[in-house]
Design a binder for these strands. Structure first.
Lengths: 236, 236
DNA sequence: GAAAAACTTGACAGTCACTCTCACTTGAGA
DNA sequence: TCTCAAGTGAGAGTGACTGTCAAGTTTTTC
């Protein structure tokens, strides 16, 4: 069920055959290298860990289905638990809040890793541009439907939006630490923190805009516009 | 985390008469013109309205006192209601969420008014700089203790921080509309929205930084640093 | 391969923010 | 003074979330 999506991501790259890599991976990795990290993980994991993954996915899948059918507010944890064949306690063991069931993704640690490996002199803004456009590409390719449903919820349900903002703020913090390191500053340098917060704040807005406008444009396009604006020094 | 899908329900805020600044009740010190608006309001209001103000203040006061003494989480609505001499129902009539009791301020409509009256050609960034530094000055002068306690809560209590972020996002939206108007764009122009979101995102970070560092610097100083960063084109 | 250790789960009871309804009171205006 | 709208308290929910404990299940150890 949920595994197929995961497996598909692992073996995918439908455009370019996996075995014979036509491109010698210069600095522009093939479509969504981020996604590969994900699949690579549950290769040879213990039974316990695999079961956990399955439960997690079952909960998320049940949640998305229920919300699709009856809306966010009307969907209770009890219903989710029933449909996912677990107890309500278990749902809360996997997700701290109801919003998290919808929002949680696990790209963060990967992004940090990738950020650390960017060329030494690269300007922070360029690093972020690379990171975030790649992330968007990966998500858009990996789970396009979830992405839209999630955006819809972010626009419509204040609690979900608030929770997303909070997780973005956490991401911002983590990115700041690495950026500070890369530019030789204290880990909690105010300028770096404000810079990162500004970028992520603008991206949040871009994402909401995208959802409000019924996904007319590509999300990637909107994100690129964000970075263009920053590259112009944020002059209006 | 509780669901706060309501909000917006409250906020009546009288429509700030633009020219009628002839206030007979002038018991408020003239620091920061923003503060004046506030005092001017409950001058000659009906008994009903004055009672409402009193109730509102009683609730806030009780809340701050209880939190001071036993912490945010440990403070329940029931306790607040008891101390403020009202029923729990009434507390919720005045504040949509528990967080709002701590956060609510009514500067927003004033800021919009002031923004509209800024000189025509002024660059958006300068307008925002003026607005927000004035707002900070006003709050710092008007209720310095609340400001600190609030900042402490914002740093320590995720729910409060999330709620503040959400209200800042609303402010951002409102400011964007006016800024768009002033620069001759569509009301929901993406660039303007991203710009405003970036500025407010950075300010949020600055405020948290200020709280995390035990208020070593002036809040105003930190805010000015934010605008300086933007004026330098956000180059790190 | 069995027993111990470590982890995961469901059941259950409880707390608390928040909603809704309804009868009652109080201030405003005629 | 009378009338009506607005504000209030009481009370009965709902549902997210927490904590605890006994009963499984997987992993580790000998």
């Amino acid at each position: 069920m949920p595994e197929n999506a995961r497996m598909a991501a692992r073996t995918k790259t439908p455009a370019a055959p996996a075995g014979s890599s036509a491109d010698p991976a210069d600095h522009q990795p093939p479509e969504g290298f981020l996604a590969e990290f994900l699949g690579a993980q549950n290769a040879q994991l213990g039974l316990r860990e695999r079961k956990k993954q399955a439960t997690r996915n079952a909960i998320r899948k049940a949640t998305y289905a229920l919300i699709e059918e009856q809306g966010y507010e009307a969907t209770t944890i009890e219903q989710i638990a029933r449909d996912a064949d677990v107890s309500p306690s278990t749902v809360f063991r996997y997700f701290a809040t109801k919003e998290d069931i919808v929002l949680t993704d696990e790209y963060d640690p990967i992004m940090l890793e990738v950020l650390r490996e960017r060329p030494a002199g690269e300007p922070p803004l360029s690093s972020l541009r690379f990171l975030l456009t790649e992330a968007v590409k990966a998500v858009a390719a990996h789970e396009p439907e979830e992405l839209k449903q999630r955006s819809r919820l972010i626009v419509e349900v204040p609690a979900v939006r608030a929770r997303m903002t909070e997780t973005m703020a956490q991401t911002s913090q983590a990115l700041s630490v690495v950026l500070a390191e890369r530019t030789g500053r204290e880990p909690d340098d105010l300028d770096v923190r404000m810079f990162t917060a500004a970028v992520l704040g603008a991206l949040r807005e871009a994402m909401i805009y995208w959802g409000e406008h019924e996904f007319e444009e590509d999300l990637l396009t909107v994100v690129l516009r964000t970075f263009d604006l920053f590259e112009r020094g944020l002059t209006l």
